[in-house]
């Protein structure tokens, strides 16, 4: 079993109470694994109670990237959240702990 961190890198951004997390394949041949295994549902489950709204996934095949947009995910918004990391900057590193099946099928 692999971790997502073994095949992809990630960065988090914030706008108001919405967090977006990119997941970018290091190698083009791993892109289909991301598409198949890193679904919006899995990302939502992974973050559990932290993300209260819907999670949308956008695909950018030409750069081997997914972009997850997570609504109601920043404790009411960057400017009023009580969290130590109000921007959710750390979420990208947490997402990279997702487990991945090392297969192309």
């Amino acid at each position: 079993m692999l971790q997502l961190r073994d095949i992809a890198h990630s960065r988090t951004g914030d706008k108001g109470n919405i967090s977006n997390v990119s997941v970018i394949a290091y190698r083009a041949e791993d892109w289909p694994i991301l598409v198949r295994q890193v679904t919006a549902e899995r990302v939502r489950d992974h973050f559990g109670t932290m993300v209260r709204g819907e999670v949308l996934r956008y695909e950018l095949p030409q750069i081997g990237a997914l972009n997850f947009v997570m609504h109601d995910a920043l404790g009411g918004g960057v400017t009023r959240s009580l969290a130590l990391d109000p921007h959710g900057k750390c979420l990208s590193s947490l997402l990279l702990t997702l487990t991945i099946e090392p297969t192309h099928t």
């Binding site: 990630s10 960065r11 951004g13 706008k15 972009n67 947009v69």
Partner: peptide, 9 residues
């Protein structure tokens, strides 16, 4: 690539 998607929906 990381910066391209930073704060993008």
């Amino acid at each position: 690539k990381e910066q391209l998607l930073y704060e993008v929906h």
